[in-house]
Amino acid sequence: MNLTVNGKPSTVDGAESLNVTELLSALKVAQAEYVTVELNGEVLEREAFDATTVKDGDAVEFLY
């Protein structure tokens, strides 16, 4: 899956889609429990991480 992460191209191997929690784990995001996630310009509530799917071509920003 090809994404733009914090403005840079990134690839997650072996996945066509992941939820936000899985993406944080796959990318080994440090202190993931404290990060705010913006997906395609929309800031996500932490409670929505498990239910929100990240797909090929999406833009993700991790805000600390």
Rank of each mutant, 00 (worst) to 15 (best):
M1Y: 05
L3F: 07
L3I: 14
L3D: 00
T4V: 11
T4W: 12
T4H: 06
N6T: 03
G7Y: 04
G7I: 03
K8N: 08
K8H: 10
K8C: 15
K8D: 06
K8Q: 10
P9I: 09
P9S: 08
P9V: 08
T11N: 08
T11F: 15
V12I: 14
V12F: 11
V12H: 05
D13A: 14
D13K: 14
G14T: 09
G14L: 08
A15F: 14
A15P: 09
E16T: 15
E16W: 15
S17Q: 10
S17Y: 11
L18R: 05
V20G: 01
V20H: 02
V20A: 01
V20Y: 03
T21W: 14
T21I: 07
T21H: 08
E22R: 09
L23T: 03
L23G: 00
L24Y: 00
S25P: 00
A26P: 00
L27D: 00
K28R: 12
K28A: 08
K28T: 05
V29N: 03
V29C: 11
A30Y: 13
A30S: 11
A30T: 11
A30N: 10
Q31K: 11
E33F: 10
Y34T: 09
Y34Q: 08
Y34D: 07
V35C: 08
T36L: 11
V37M: 04
E38L: 15
E38H: 15
E38W: 15
E38V: 15
N40S: 01
G41R: 04
G41F: 04
G41C: 06
E42Y: 11
V43H: 07
L44R: 01
E45L: 13
E47P: 06
E47S: 13
A48F: 11
F49V: 01
F49L: 04
D50V: 07
A51E: 10
A51G: 10
A51H: 14
T52A: 06
T52F: 06
T52I: 11
T53C: 14
T53I: 14
V54W: 02
V54S: 02
K55R: 12
D56R: 05
D56E: 09
D56L: 04
D56Y: 05
G57F: 03
D58H: 02
D58N: 02
D58L: 03
D58S: 04
V60I: 13
V60T: 02
E61V: 15
E61Y: 14
E61R: 15
L63C: 14
Y64S: 08
Y64K: 06
